[in-house]
Design a protein around this nucleic acid. Structure first.
Lengths: 211, 211, 211, 211
DNA sequence: GATGAATGAGGGTTCATTCAT
DNA sequence: AATGAATGAACCCTCATTCAT
């Protein structure tokens, strides 16, 4: 896949990837402009098509690239022997905060991907996401200790509740980040607050679910 | 506002509104095409600008229109004397299912609005939403009976948990609806399933939170 | 010509004429907008076409209207018994300053007419101007006393020199008026200065040309 | 500035410049159509924007281009040691006739520029013109021999008179050229006549002003 | 491999004019 | 007489993509 691109030195690759991530983070797929990408990357118009064939391929390449980086980072640092689902989430959160601190563009790009509606890329995005996404959540849950839960608790509901509370919280903070016009400094403050508040929700939910 | 448009007979208004909602539901603001709207509505290119002046106004008109329909339907049918927050949610859900059954496009449009990123409309959307949105959640909670909760439960966390579980569930079903390519028949099936599953989550959460 | 328009009461006629003069003073013919004219005049879109048929007719009507007002005012107040061409010019200048003070829009409109290049109206404008314009200059010169000039002076050259010096001066002041963004207060100041300076040029030229 | 355009071979450049000069000579800025320019130049719609970015840049480029050609030609051939202002004017006239004979479009374009009213380009045109224009008239006068004038003549008035007589004459011939619908053959005849008549006015004015 | 000139469809918008009311 | 809804062509400009160099 894209052998001519991957033959480039890392520096060049990164500058192109960053330019593209940046553009696709600000605009949804259709409104994003390859013109702006090549300008920011400092390469010629034709080259991006030489590397990726067309806009769609470039976009899907970015998705795979970011997704893989997330996966790698996660499964390098994730302790799958931890039986407590809450502690697993804590790990996950700290890992993801780490990734984003190193690659702030990943976060905004993935946010855009999640809300992408353009029919041109939607279907392919969905198959990728459903393939990988479910796998990952399954992996994440694999091996947790269900005996920590009270007997009367239906763990399916409990696990979803935990997940959605975290989703809700992060959406709330996302919203604030959006309202700050994506100020990166504010992002770091919000990320801290969000992590703290997640802990509070863990303290709230844990005694309800666990023995 | 937009007197020339509002003078049209309902039939014509609806055909234009539907065409516009449909387009703005499939594409984000910037990628949506007024050309396609007028073609679907069967009117001339110039006419949409005669009615609304420009694309942005049309979009914001649609937002107000849908928002008002939601609000009207909700506050006509909502029983604010109900003290039990779970029962309030049940009311709200059945009301919203009703609205959407009558106006399927409302739903997809509002979904798009929530994720809109185009700077051209974002700020105005935000002021509208923050003005109205917060009021509404406050109104929704006003007068609920907090004494139904166990004493050791922090109601702030509990109420957010309920909200986010419902959000999570409806996002999950949204996703399935999206994957069906917005097949309206599938929508009705999913809406039923979603309502049922919401009840299940209420059964799960209620004994945890309530005395 | 335009009987339906001329049947209107004077008030209404004037409001339409003023709105049209104003628009055609700011933009050249093609760029001027009938939309803006009807809006400023407070009449309906169709009415202006009911009165004048089309944009071109409206424009040519305005030209005739303004031209006639100029002619009337001039030949009402002009003393054709005055033998001294310099004094005739002084009269003319003071008459024209008067007209413009009463109808500031006339001036800017005529300025625009003189530089109009739009092929749609140019030819008709030219025939009107050449018909009237030459007549007028001939009338203006009729009966002046050539014996006031030195014998060695070729009066054809002298008269043109006087005319062009006045043209040059007024162009110079026009330019300043333009640079003031057509500030009407500045206009009055400039008109005064211009009149004074014209006198100075008369003082300069008179001893050269006259015995 | 506009490197992609300037890289073209001269032939192509000239065909585009000519098409653009032609259109901007017939219509004022706002009414001129890039569509017509590209059609006449035989290039695609997008290309003109590839070269110049937008209509305004194209227009201002043309202004600079023509202005520079004028300046170059003038200051290559102009003899600044000539003390007699009349002879300087004769030089200038013959130089300008030469330029225009080689580039007939220059003349009409500059005529349009001088009367341009469109606010979109007016201010920038004015700064360019005031920067260059004043300098040029000053340069033109620099070093002329004022002692040639009679002592009782105020040279300020005299020099302006000469200038305005030439302006008036050329306007008169312009008008005739315009009435010929810009027939280039007629132009050459008129240019000759105009040059001759200018000489006549010099013969008329010289004995009045000079010792 | 790398460039950027070239394309033409499509974008939103304004316009003069028509015509049913 | 008077309205303004309706039209569609034309406006400037951006776009993803191609291709000769």
């Amino acid at each position: 896949m894209y052998p001519s691109f991957l033959k480039l030195n890392e520096e060049k690759q990164r500058s192109i990837i960053n330019a593209a991530l940046n553009e696709f983070s600000k605009q949804p797929y259709e409104a994003a402009s390859t013109n702006k990408i090549v300008k920011e990357a400092g390469i010629s118009k034709g080259l991006i098509f030489h590397y990726f064939g067309n806009k769609k391929n470039l976009y899907l390449f970015l998705f795979d690239y970011v997704f893989n980086k997330y996966s790698e980072a996660t499964f390098e640092n994730f302790d799958l022997t931890e039986p407590d689902v809450f502690k697993r989430y804590k790990q996950l959160i700290s890992i993801q905060i780490n990734i984003v601190q190193q690659n702030p563009a990943f976060f905004s790009f993935m946010n855009m991907v999640h809300i992408e509606k353009s029919p041109e890329v939607l279907s392919e995005l969905e198959t990728k996401q459903s393939l990988n996404g479910e796998n990952n959540y399954d992996k994440f849950l694999k091996g947790i200790d269900y005996s920590l839960f009270k007997e009367e608790i239906d763990t399916k509901y409990a696990l979803n509740t935990i997940k959605w509370v975290l989703d809700g919280l992060s959406n709330q903070y996302n919203q604030q980040y959006k309202e700050s016009n994506y100020d990166i400094d504010i992002y770091y403050t919000l990320a801290d607050q969000c992590a703290t508040e997640m802990e509070e929700y863990f303290h709230f939910l844990k005694p309800l679910f666990y023995k």
